[in-house]
Every structure is written in structure tokens, then in C-alpha cells.
Amino acid sequence: MTSSSISLLLVAAISLAAPLLYAALGETISENAGVINIQLEGMMLVGAFTGVYGAHVFHSTWLGFLCAVAGGVALAAVHGVACLVFRANQIVSGVVLNILALGATSYGLVVLLGSSAGNSVPTLARVRIPLLSSIPVIGPALFDQNVMVYVAFLLVPVVWWVLRRTGFGLALQAVGERPQAASSLGVAVARMRWLALLICGALAGLGGGQLTLAGLGAFTQNVTAGRGFIALAAVVFGGWRPWGVLGAILLFSTADAFQIRAQAFGAHIPYQFLAMLPYLVTILALAVLVRRRRAPSALGVNV
């Protein structure tokens, strides 16, 4: 196990973490307000698609990211109409919207991106931070990534600050914990939930866009391949707190990177077991550990 292979592992882990981080931070905000998004995967998938399509149409990666945001928000809005307006069960709506997202993006792939020319967009260049990126082992991982990776990690303290230090964040948590009490305090519960949900949609869409626009440069069917569910697990495992979520995602993405580079380490763990890891540790953490943090009391409960 050489230091260069560790360095490569870390580079992969950090860049794999970014899409997950966007989605999971969005979900953290939403779940703190009491809205659960099983369709997190679907929102990522839609974002991944609209991102590529937008970048192709507008010839701009950045407008592509904007379209990714719009795609995630659109699916979130459907969830909001079903659950927040018509009080549908959030779980059912989420499951169904995942099916919708998979169908719609597969359809769009054929209809809109059918030609190979349409389905190939330039990816984000890496931005190398001088000096810092030359730090041995961790330098390339932390300081030689594309801009949206930096943004993803900078979002962690931002979300923490918003949740813990702003009136908006307090109101958000009040809505997720005791919606009735929040309402009696003059907090507009429905509006807060909508906001949280749409922010989640935006971030999940961004996460999907990160996957295609920063990484692959193309959309393929079901390109997210369950990353939305991993992000969902990370929110639970991270105890509904941004720093905890970051920790969970670094653990999961390192496992993912290890799986890709397992040969380099001479390890013989079947990759499926590494792929199971996020789910297994989340279940074990819920079942075995005495929880310091629990889910917001009104999570998934319509008011």
C-alpha cells in the first residue's frame, strides 16, 4: 500500500463524495423540516439528465448545472403537490416518483439525447490550488478537484450554520419536530416545508448534475444507480446533522473508492459487500447503537 495509491484512493473518495453530499445535505434540510424524500434518487436522476440536456442545448456547463437544479426542483414540486397540498403519504409518493424519474429520464434519453452528439458534453475542469495541492497524500484529494467539489464541501458548514444559527433554521427544526407548536408560535408550517422540500430538490438535482456534468460528461440510463438511497442512508447514519452526514458520506465514498481501486491494494473483498456497506452500517447503527440523535418527530407526518 503505497502513499501514491492512498493518494489516488483519497482523490477518488472525495470526488465520489460530492454528488452524494449535495443530495444528502438537501435531504438533511428537508428531513429536519419533517419531509422525507424517498425520491431523492429520482431527483438526482432527473438532475443528472436535465443537466446534460441543458449543457447540450445552451452549450454551457454552468447553465447545465442550472438546469440540473431546475430538474430536481420540478420533481420535488410534484412531491410537494401530492404530499403538502393533497396530503398523500410521503413514502408512497416518493416510491412512485422514483419510478416516474426512471421512466421519464429513460424516455428523454431516447427522445432528446438520442444522438451520441447530444449526449456528450464537456466536463468541469479541475481547479488546482497552488501550494496546497502539493501537500503529499492529501493534497491532490483536497485541493485538486473541480469547483463543484469544493462547493459541495463548503456547503457542509453553510447548512450547519443555517440550521443551527439562523431563525430560518430554528423554524425549520421546529416544523419538523413539533409542527403544532411551531404553528402556535407563528411559524408558517406549510411554507417552511415547501421551502425545505424545494431546497432539497435543488440540491439533489445539483448532485445529479455533479455526477454527469463534472464526472461522466454524458447521461446513461439509471446513471445514479442507487446513489440517492445511499444519500438517504447517510442522513440517517449521520444523525440528521450536516457534520454527521459528511462523516457518513466520507465513510461510504471511501468504501466506494476502495472498491474501484481494490486491486491496487491487493484486497479480495467482493465489491458487492462494499456496496452493501452503507446500508448495513446504517441498519446496524439504528438497531444496535444507543442513539444520541433520533429522527425529527414529525418526519413523514403530514400536517
Partner: peptide
């Protein structure tokens, strides 16, 4: 594209 099928299914439930 056959992907219209899951779209119909999901929309019906929505």
C-alpha cells in the same frame, strides 16, 4: 421508447 410505460404507471398513481 418503451419508457413511456413506467411514466404511465407512475402518473396513474400520482
Amino acid at each position: 421508447p418503451a419508457a413511456i410505460v413506467p411514466i404511465v404507471e407512475a402518473l396513474a398513481v400520482v
